[in-house]
Amino acid sequence: MTADTLLERITDYASRPNPYPLYAELREAGPVVRQADGSYLVGTYHEIAALLHDPRMSADPRSRGETAGTLPFLRLDDPEHHRLRRLAMRPFGPPHSPGRVDAMRGEIARITEELMEGFEAGRQLDVVDDFAYPLPVTVICRLLGVPREDEPLFREWSDAIVASADVRPEDQASAERDRAGDQARSEMGQYLVNLAEQRRDNPGDDMLSAFVNEPDPALRLTHEELAETGVLLLIAGHETTVNLITNGVLTLLRHREHLDHLHKEPDLLPRAIEELLRYEPPVHMRERIPRADIDVSGTTLPEGTSVILALASGNRDPKRFQEPDRFDPARPDNEHLGFGSGIHLCYGAPLARIEAQAALDALIPRLGTARLVEDPPPYRQNAMLRGPRHLTVEL
Rank of each mutant, 00 (worst) to 15 (best):
T2E: 15
D4W: 07
L7R: 07
R9N: 05
T11Y: 05
Y13M: 11
A14E: 11
P17Q: 05
Y20M: 01
P21D: 14
Y23I: 11
E25Q: 06
L26E: 09
G30K: 12
A36T: 06
S39H: 11
Y45K: 09
Y45D: 09
A50L: 11
L52V: 12
R56P: 10
E66C: 03
A68Q: 08
T70K: 00
L71Q: 02
P72A: 14
F73D: 07
F73Q: 06
H81R: 14
R85N: 06
M89E: 14
P91T: 03
G99A: 08
R100Q: 13
R105T: 15
E107D: 14
I108P: 04
I111A: 14
T112H: 10
E113P: 02
F119P: 02
F119Q: 03
E120S: 09
V127A: 09
F131Q: 06
L135M: 05
V139T: 11
C141V: 04
G145P: 05
E151A: 14
P152G: 00
F154K: 01
W157I: 01
A160T: 09
A173T: 12
A180F: 03
R185T: 15
R185A: 15
S186N: 02
S186P: 02
N194Y: 02
Q198E: 14
R200G: 07
D201I: 10
P203H: 09
G204A: 10
D206F: 01
M207S: 05
S209A: 14
A210Y: 02
N213D: 00
D216W: 06
L219S: 12
L219W: 10
R220S: 04
L221D: 04
T222H: 00
T229W: 05
L232S: 06
L234H: 03
H238Y: 14
E239C: 09
T241L: 00
N243K: 15
E257D: 14
L269M: 06
H284V: 13
R286M: 15
R291D: 07
A292N: 02
I294C: 13
T299W: 10
T300A: 10
L301I: 00
E303I: 04
T305P: 00
I308N: 13
A312G: 10
Q322D: 15
D328F: 12
A330R: 14
G340N: 11
H344G: 12
Y347H: 15
G348T: 15
L351I: 10
A352W: 04
I354Q: 13
D361E: 13
L363C: 12
G368R: 14
P377H: 05
N382A: 14
L385S: 11
L385D: 12
R386C: 03
V393Y: 03
V393S: 00
L395C: 09
